[in-house]
Amino acid sequence: MEIDPLIFRLSIFILSIFVGYYVVWSVTPSLHTPLMSVTNAISSVIIVGAIIAGLSGDSNNVFNTSSIFGFLAIALAAINIFGGFLVTQRMLAMYKKKKKDK
C-alpha cells in the first residue's frame, strides 16, 4: 500500500516544529521583539496561497468572488511582508556594541 502524501507533509510539519523549537531557544532574549516582527513577516508567505487565489479567474473575468478574496489577502500579506521585514531591519540596525575607547 502506498503512503499518502499527507503523511510526508505531516512529517515535514512535525520536524519543523522541532527545528523551530531549538532555533528559537537559541535566540537571545534581547532580540525577542525583532523575532516577533520577523516571524510575522515570514508567516505572510501565506501570500503564495493568495496569489493562486487571485489568479484563479480567467482572462475575461479577472474578478470573481473567489479571486477578490485572493486579491484582498494579497494586499494584507504584502503589508505584513514589507512592514515586517523593514521594521525588523530598522530595529536590528539600532543594536550596537559599546564603542571602543580611543
Binding site: 519543523s16 516544529i17 527545528v19 523551530g20 523575532l35 516571524t39 510575522n40 501565506i46 503564495v48 496561497g49
Partner: peptide, 27 residues
C-alpha cells in the same frame, strides 16, 4: 499559516507555520 499550507500542499508554508507556531509558543 500551517493549516493553509496543508491545504495548498505547500512546503514553504508548512515549514514557516511550524516555525512561527513554535516560536510564539516558546515566547
Amino acid at each position: 499559516a500551517a493549516g493553509i499550507g496543508f491545504t495548498l500542499e505547500n512546503t514553504a508554508l508548512i515549514i514557516t507555520g511550524a516555525l512561527v507556531g513554535s516560536s510564539g509558543a516558546i515566547l
